[in-house]
Write a protein that binds this DNA or RNA. Structure first.
Lengths: 332, 332
DNA sequence: TTGAAAGCGCTAACAG
DNA sequence: CTGTTAGCGCTTTCAA
């Protein structure tokens, strides 16, 4: 590996001068600058980021913790965060917490010993260890998506109550009256918020939610399958269903169809997130759009600002969801 | 930040002793070890990886280049690579090359200046810059999935010809005779290999492939949609279709159904990769399984071994695909 | 405008 | 078994 010293020797100047040329930190005479640049090119020199970071106590890396990687919503999120990071010249270190708050704690612990600038943290659930988090405070940190009700760490989230409200309103609008829902684990507060938005909006419109039509199965395909099977086996009737994410909704549709029901004619189904394949599913899936790109950009920007010592005016951002209507709810 | 020196002072020993306790590199007397450990715990000391890496010239980071993140096959691959890396205490730095060989070249260039141990490289296409790659040789590198025909860099790939053969054989077995295929870009050699496997296996079985039923649309949903629309608009008849990945196959099914055709009764459709949602699609998708987990593990292991200076006996591994039969081809 | 020197936090001879 | 010393590659005072 060719070092700054080598370049200095070739250019016939001191190491500090080479450093100054590279970082444009102070003025260097045209003449020497050219000599140095020539030497750099000659040996194809690249600064050693390790040494640089050690000296400067800042790195270009940020850590990202997600509960799952191969999950359409999270891969979409990761994709967006990567884009935001790379736009700012930051690198992403990704860790999968596997929806397990113990592994999450280990990962945080590890991350703190890592050469990173900050952590973007998509918490597993309300069980996530608080004490580790407070230790984590020693480096910039932002929580995305799954924040606590009274999150102290800067965070960017969705108005999940409103997501539930939109889903309820749309199902009512297309004529549904007996509405079922399959939710995420209630240890994740956004599952509760989404649910509350649904139930309260139905109530406001004179429709009482039947709690037997609630299945807290989680954010997986299995939840969608199990939920629908459960409802049907219990002999419960329903004409509308909200799956709290698109995977669940799609699994629900698939199960309904297998059971001989038509979607949307017999049951209108709406999902959440607007992941890529919801558009291609058969029938195409109505859903609640979640602005992942915007959320990612805000989160990365936080880290960036916090790192450079800037103070941030607003340390909580809550974005609004919106309704996407496709065929799975169009009773036409 | 508390440093090793601080710990040494508290424990009343020299910095080297503290280092020795931490790294268990040589024997330290029970007595001093305990003193040191107590001091470490007292101030909650964590070694600075930056300094450690600078000194040792090895990091715990590996870079991963993928053509896309939010693509079911790649998020599955990323998921598996993360698992393999984390199992070995390695961190993953992810870069999205956006299927663009120019951005890919930039990313490699950047990665080379990064504090990484090695690169796992999922090449965009045959257009990927060779010269950059050879420069990249200065650090351990392994190509996964999309390797060249005569790849010089250690690589782990699938027997893509065999994948095509399996698809062809299965479609023949369920009674198809007019078979269409939608392939990846032919600049990616695995698209060509898969295609060759299909065509030659058909020929071996006395079925001549009609080249008008080839659509080189790429690995996207759009390709599946466009391909089917094209075939139908050209008035071409077909009773079987292979999409070279699951997204394409699913988009094809969705388009066929929209056009009033039944799957599998009118057209049997098979995909490739066996991503998560192919099982949940309606109808569930027959596909060619690709052993991503195994591929990932081999790739990460390569980097790990190369880093520690071990020589690797076999620097090319080619794994076998297998057939997964579901409803989209069961004409029953 | 440039060079010398110190030091970021760590490890590894080398000596004892 | 442990301490002293040098140095990884870089930046930044401090002087000149």
């Amino acid at each position: 590996m060719v070092s700054l010293k080598d370049v200095a020797k070739i250019a016939g100047v001191s190491p500090s001068t080479v450093s100054r040329v590279i970082n444009r930190t102070v003025f260097v005479s045209e003449e020497t600058r050219i000599k140095v640049e020539k030497a750099i090119a000659e040996v194809n020199y690249r600064p050693n980021l390790l040494a640089q970071s050690l000296r400067l106590k800042v790195t270009k890396n940020i850590g990202l913790l997600v509960p799952a990687i191969d999950h359409p919503a999270f891969s979409l999120l990761i994709d967006n965060i990567e884009a935001s990071a790379s736009k700012r010249g930051l690198n992403l270190l990704i860790f999968n917490t596997h929806n397990d708050y113990k592994r999450e704690a280990e990962a945080i612990d590890m991350l703190l010993g890592q050469n990173i600038n900050g952590i973007i943290f998509c918490r597993v659930s309300d069980e996530s260890y608080i004490d580790n988090l407070s230790r984590a405070y020693s480096i910039p940190m932002v929580v995305i998506d799954r924040a606590y009700d009274n999150e102290k760490i800067p965070n960017v989230t969705l108005d999940n109550y409103q997501a539930g409200a939109l889903a309820a309103q749309h199902l009512l609008d297309v004529g549904c009256r007996r509405i079922a829902t399959i939710t995420g684990n209630f240890k994740i507060n956004l599952s509760r918020d989404r649910y509350a938005g649904l139930v309260e909006t139905l109530a406001k419109n004179g429709v009482q939610f039947d709690e037997r039509l609630l299945w807290k199965g989680g954010f997986t395909y299995e939840a969608g399958i199990d939920g629908v099977n459960h409802f049907i086996e219990e002999g419960l009737e329903f004409d509308g269903l909200w799956g709290q994410n698109d995977m669940v909704a799609i699994a629900a549709i698939s199960t309904l169809v297998k059971r001989g029901l038509r979607v949307p004619e017999d049951v209108a189904v709406i999902g959440m997130d607007d992941v890529r394949f919801s558009e291609v599913y058969n029938p195409s899936l109505s859903t609640i759009y979640q602005p992942f790109a915007e959320m990612s950009d805000i989160a990365v920007d936080y880290i960036d600002k916090l790192t450079s010592g800037e103070t941030i005016a607003q340390n909580k951002v809550r974005l609004q969801p919106s309704l996407v209507v496709r065929n799975s709810t169009l009773k036409g």
